[in-house]
Design a protein around this nucleic acid. Sequence first.
DNA 1: TACCGTGGATGAAACGATTCAATAAATAGG
DNA 2: CCTATTTATTGAATCGTTTCATCCACGGTA
Lengths: 340, 340
Amino acid sequence: MNRGRPPVSIKDVARHANVSIGTVSNVLNRPEMVSEDRRRRVTQVIEELGYVRNDVARQLKAGQSLTVGLVVQDSANPFYNEIALGAEAAAEKLGQAVILGNAGLSPAREGLYLDLFQEQRVRGVLITPQSADRARIDTLRSRGIPVILVDEHASSSLYCSLAVDDIEGGRLAVEHLLSTGRRRIAFVGGPDSLHQVRDRRTGARRAVQGVPGASLEDFASEALTVLEGRRIGEQIADLPQDRRPDAVFAANDLVAIGLLQAFAFHRRIRVPEDIALIGYDDIDFATSAIVPLSSIRQPARLIGRTAVELLEDESTDPEHRHRHVSFQPELVVRDSTAAP
Amino acid sequence: MNRGRPPVSIKDVARHANVSIGTVSNVLNRPEMVSEDRRRRVTQVIEELGYVRNDVARQLKAGQSLTVGLVVQDSANPFYNEIALGAEAAAEKLGQAVILGNAGLSPAREGLYLDLFQEQRVRGVLITPQSADRARIDTLRSRGIPVILVDEHASSSLYCSLAVDDIEGGRLAVEHLLSTGRRRIAFVGGPDSLHQVRDRRTGARRAVQGVPGASLEDFASEALTVLEGRRIGEQIADLPQDRRPDAVFAANDLVAIGLLQAFAFHRRIRVPEDIALIGYDDIDFATSAIVPLSSIRQPARLIGRTAVELLEDESTDPEHRHRHVSFQPELVVRDSTAAP
DNA sequence: TACCGTGGATGAAACGATTCAATAAATAGG
DNA sequence: CCTATTTATTGAATCGTTTCATCCACGGTA
């Protein structure tokens, strides 16, 4: 126990090794500049005293940290976890660390983490924004902290951004439903402040257009969660059969899983016989849902990795120009959309 | 864009407001000590210049940070995510932040994050350790950084710890299986270095003992993941029917979901008719599995919250005595263990 | 012998905040 | 009007690093 005992500093090491502070620092940072015997002496003292470099002081001096802040919409969504994993892996390669802030679907908490990261002088911020309100993010940017918009295309050219083509994804999903013979399609998702929701719906609309007899009905959820999915599922299940859709496109897999639960509970509705169902994100649990879930896959790890790489480029390359990277979604077919 | 432009410091604010550095600091930290007009002047300049306190410098001076490090075994497991959510919520109340390190089931990465947190001089570390090797953790402790063992009972009295009674949990699970008439029970889990695995198995053994005709067979997995669950599931499915168990207790829900997938793929095996299945942790996705999964619930959020509170106590109360908090698990019955 | 260059080591300044002793100003009391 | 007391403000020291100009000793060269 050494509660309260002040931790060993570089000064202590210097004293014990009978060298100057500068020498110890050199041993740590450019050992080739230090003579053999001193280096050995210092290294040994470091070992003996259990010295650990104080990164706080180091950062203060350097004015730049090796920590990247990542703000995600909802850490309960495995999709964002995958992004985080990708980012972590890339950061590790660069000798950096990722610290995660979970906005938990609340814009207020999003702001809270942005403030915190700003105070901590992180090297940059990766964020999956929740609303179109860019004021806070612009502020960060104007203070000189690089920001990368993840899973969203920047309209301005102030940021790097990376995103999957959600319109294409929506189109893929609904085209697939149509190809299995479904015509009365429902779209479940919300709130509309999320561009993911808007874009996927747009793609869905486009797919429906021009197909004779095909229609798209909208069911607005308040969040992209299992709970909301279940709620809307009950609504759909309660509809008279002739007004019920024969296929549902859910804005993400969590919502789809909620729908599935509701349908399974009202045993009257079978998936895919009565209603076909497709989700979005292709999270791991889609495979293991009550009925294995068709979905639109996004390269989540790659997104996370690329975000960190863009940040690194922005903060080291003086020639850096903001880029907007686009990824393509991919259809994954499972039981939930088998032809009836 | 102000790339490169040095950020605004307290000095700049002082200069613009025609006051001393100390006064600005006072406006920030004890505004009641500063006269009305100066306070206004300073506040206004802060606004104009967009000054943001540099937390790095603040921490250096203070020698203590407001950041808590949390190292989890595997962030892909929703159970640990729940713990993180609980910890975050509690930290927020104390004006602190949680930074997450994901060991990804690798002891090496666990060590890496411990080093990182140590360099960052975090206020303390919450960790769900992966092996019995306490050397690294002891080192941290001896350097004066408080450590809380999460989901594990400390044998020594050097740490606070909190855990769920896994022996009891194992007993609950298998007793339930026995109560539905199953006798040939299989336990799937590993590696044995995880006390969770050992304890849950021990509980299972105790439940089986003394029940005539009941047996417990062991299937060792290499990790507690969906993938490993699927692998063992294939093995079990390939057994001749007379050597097959009639119930499986999986060491956690991810493994259980993997088993479920394997059984569903080999359509020969129906759950619960042919084999009953129970998992552990009661993650959200247990409800929405192919067959809704029975499980043993642990109060994950509460665990996270309590961990932060213990840490706070340890780092502020000079009278602090290490505590070992125990939680009770709870049986949740769903379709996967319905009587045959 | 005087001079120069060089590889190592040093000491002090700087980063941006907090804190505290010292000071200045204002107020009260006699 | 002088002193004592309170209150507001300041300036300097400090935290633990890194960095850089300076310095020193030693060897080689003219």
